[in-house]
């Protein structure tokens, strides 16, 4: 496979106020690949995702997506190119019903990416189908997590930025989430997910990038990280 990667991040730096969070992140996501961005709390996982999505003002470096430089584009333009962002804190529109939340995410179908409809998403997340008229604010954390993912999929993205999909969820929901991620991969979606949960990442990801203090310290097949106890201890302390 010599095809160009779908997402190429080069020397990405970002700041919160005066705090320098990302010191130069380099990573790639190939077409159809699932990459796990691993690291401890505060290592820079979420910041990487936000910086890629254009949600941080203070950033430098390059972000290439699908052969285009998107580093200077505003978030809505990046989203319309097919980059789907699922935030860790869910940010469901609590005043809107499930149906309306999905409507906000809806974008025209895109060549080379799976096309989604509410019906297809309800099939993927049966829970949502039962509560399509309920307001986002009246759902459990797990249901909100499903809705957030479904809402982003309505934009028919070709690459998904999935920030801590298993955080704070009951084990049963984590399992459903892992199934969903595998189903999306089977549809041909590329995914960059951030995780602290090694079991979850190991179950879904092809490749792992470990971030520490704002830099990528390890980049290799998921298998290698799982087998390399020393690397795991050094970077993840598990």
């Amino acid at each position: 496979m010599t095809a160009a990667p779908l997402l190429t991040v080069g020397n990405l730096q970002a700041w919160y106020g005066r705090a320098h969070i990302l010191m130069g992140v380099d990573l790639q996501v190939g077409r159809g690949e699932v990459v796990a961005l691993m690291g401890r709390n505060g290592a820079g996982k979420t910041t990487t995702m936000k910086a890629v999505m254009g949600l941080l003002d203070a950033r430098t470096g390059s972000v290439g997506f699908d052969g285009r430089d998107v580093s200077a584009l505003p978030p809505h333009r990046i989203a319309r190119l097919g980059l789907g962002y699922v935030p860790e804190d869910r940010r469901v529109f609590t005043d809107l019903t499930v149906e309306e939340n999905l409507e906000v995410g809806r974008q025209p179908p895109r060549a080379g990416a799976p096309a989604w409809t509410p019906e297809r998403l309800y099939a993927l997340f049966p829970n949502l189908a039962e509560m399509c008229g309920r307001r986002g604010g009246r759902m459990s954390g797990g249901e909100q997590q499903m809705l957030t993912l479904a809402r982003t999929l309505m934009g028919n993205p070709s690459l998904l930025l999935l920030d801590e999909p298993s955080e704070g969820l009951a084990p049963r929901i984590v399992q459903q989430m892992a199934d969903a991620v595998r189903a999306l991969k089977a549809e041909g979606l590329s995914i960059l997910l951030s995780e602290q949960n090694l079991a979850f990442a190991g179950a879904v990801a092809d490749r792992a990038c470990v971030i520490e203090k704002g830099r990528i310290r390890f980049d290799g097949p998921m298998r290698t990280l799982l087998d390399d106890e020393e690397a795991r201890r050094a970077y993840l302390a598990v």
Binding site: L96, V104, G105, G155
Partner: peptide, 18 residues
């Protein structure tokens, strides 16, 4: 619907392509 979404969370709506 988009207006109500943006009322609540402008940034998230933008990240969804609005």
């Amino acid at each position: 619907t988009l207006v109500r979404a943006a009322t609540q969370d402008r940034e998230m709506a933008a990240a969804l392509g609005v």
